[in-house]
Amino acid sequence: MAQLEVVLFWLAIAGYSVGTIAYLTFLAAKKPKAGQIGLIALVVGWVLHLGAILTRWIEVGHVPLATQFEFLSFFAWTTVAIYLFTEAQTKQKIIGAFAVPIIWILMGASWISYITGGAEGAGIPATLQSPWFVVHVTVAVVSFASFALAFSVALIYLLQEKHLKKKTTSSFFKRLPPLGTLDHLSYRSVVLGFALLTVTLITGMIWAQSAFGKFWVWDPKLTAAVATWIIFGAYLHARLTAGWQGRRSALIATIGFAAVLVTFGISYFTGAHLETFLPGG
């Protein structure tokens, strides 16, 4: 069974790799075919990736979101889903040239996590097995994936706006979507991400309360999560009240995504953060 999972996972990486190259080619050269190939590779990779996740689910016997590897893998998979949805909806293929490489990097990180011990499934203590856990983690991943999309869109915004301000004449920028579209899309992704991050924090507290009898500890991960929440909260506040739409919004979205990665990275070094709730943790 593990064999099958590895094969599917590798094939998914291969699909995403082809997708990354194709989307970058699409950006660099005006080749509609490259864009089509990229989309197909991405969809194929995504289906295989789903296969890998389901295989693991059957193998470990619970939702595979307990280890760092499982989490990263699901993060990458969800980002692909959100990206595919965005492309279908906005027809802005250029965003893929920025979002798909991020997915590829997440997949790489996931793979590193796998070979450095993530292959083992985590046995979750019975006390922790609760529907709240599943909701908490799933929602967290979707939230992070939304921020990942907001980040890639914000990057394009910053490039395009710099071009327009500096009045550079390169024809490259004509291929990037208009500022208005980018700003709106980034905003929408942040709203979704922020709402889900709020749900993540609330379900996390409910779950911690039921499992450990305390709803909060100030461990580094939770602190980083709160910082992330505050950054995106500030984003929305500044936008709605001070007219910070545009470049400033895009900058905050970029910083916010960095905070997401930090939140993520912390447990990369300290282990899954649920131990800190346990006595002596």
Partner: peptide, 9 residues
């Protein structure tokens, strides 16, 4: 007109 489109779509 093209430049305006790069801002507003």
């Amino acid at each position: 007109v093209e430049l305006a489109k790069q801002v507003f779509g």
